Computed example of a mutant assay.
Amino acid sequence: MANAVKLVFPNACHRLCTWHIAKNAGKRIGSYLGNPEFKKQFNHCLHGCTTEIEFQVSWDDLISRYNVGDNTWLTKLYSLKEKWCPAFSRDIFSAKIRSTQRSESTNNVFHQISTNIMELIEFVHHYEKKIEEMRLAELEDDYRCKNGAPRPKVWSKMLRSAAKVFDTNNITSLPTQYVLKRWTKEAKKGIVVSNDTGGGTSENSKSARVLRLSELMHEGNNVYDIASLTSSGTKIVKDLLTEAMKRLEKDKDTLHVSLMQYKKEHSVRIEDMFGTNFD
């Protein structure tokens, strides 16, 4: 996956999930973690170091004090330190997200409600019940987010100093160009997609279609999720989808592209189908 990230997302900062590292540590160095002092220092290296020098000193002390220099897992972990130690990514904004929290928490929930002897129909019932609880919790979180304000947590001297640099210059709000949509209350309303397809080649056209499809599916899933809560909501969406299909069938651009796609996939002449020259 690391090699793929370099190719597909060359400007991305690829990080390792610290939750997985901590979980694997229990399997690989569990005997050492039984020592409270070792565990405390290991966790400090994993989560607490703020500078590269601090990390290096703490790590070297850990290795020498507990004589674990020949542990292959720790050696491998150290070689990847730039991908998990916070000291090496202080110039990368990540909102302090250091694990695949959403997927792991979801996996954990469904592992709790399922067993290897559970029948499929029983699992489906548990699944639907848990999904309903999770959706309700998300709606409540959305409501609190939209109708409340976060409490500022200024804890570092650097932040206090910056807040005072701003006051002196009578800057009372953060310019909007520095606030990305994905960190705002409006993050769920649509997604950010790139319009840079680099030309009209076949591959670029496919990429553009994938982006449009992704955006539509994201918007659609949000609508379907809310509409499915009630019969009236479901009817509203179904009626609108029917109307949308009628409008698409009348849209010349959409009709033309869909017919060209059919022609390409089935190797037939559109003229033979309709007796009309669509070119």
Results as ranks from 00 to 15, higher is better:
T176K: 06
N170H: 14
E128A: 03
S161R: 07
S156P: 03
R182A: 06
E132D: 14
L120W: 02
R182H: 09
M158C: 13
K164V: 11
V154I: 14
S156W: 07
A163W: 05
N108A: 14
M158F: 12
L136R: 09
L139G: 12
S161F: 08
I131C: 05
W155M: 12
T115M: 02
R151V: 15
K164F: 13
A163L: 15
Y178I: 07
A163I: 15
E132S: 14
R151C: 13
A162H: 10
S161A: 12
E122G: 01
L174G: 04
T184D: 11
V109I: 11
C145P: 00
F123A: 00
A162I: 13
L120C: 08
H126V: 03
K153P: 01
V179F: 09
T172V: 15
M134K: 06
S105E: 06
V165L: 15
M118I: 04
E128W: 01
F110Q: 05
V109E: 01
R182F: 06
S114W: 00
N169C: 14
Y178W: 12
F110T: 04
N108R: 10
V154Q: 07
I121H: 01
N170E: 15
L136T: 11
S105N: 11
I131L: 09
L139W: 10
S114Q: 03
M158L: 15
S173Q: 11
L120M: 09
K129W: 00
A137P: 01
N170T: 09
V124C: 03
R144S: 11
E186Y: 10
Q112T: 09
V165T: 13
N147I: 06
K164H: 08
I117W: 00
L136P: 01
K157E: 15
I131W: 02
A149M: 11
E128T: 02
E128H: 03
V179Y: 07
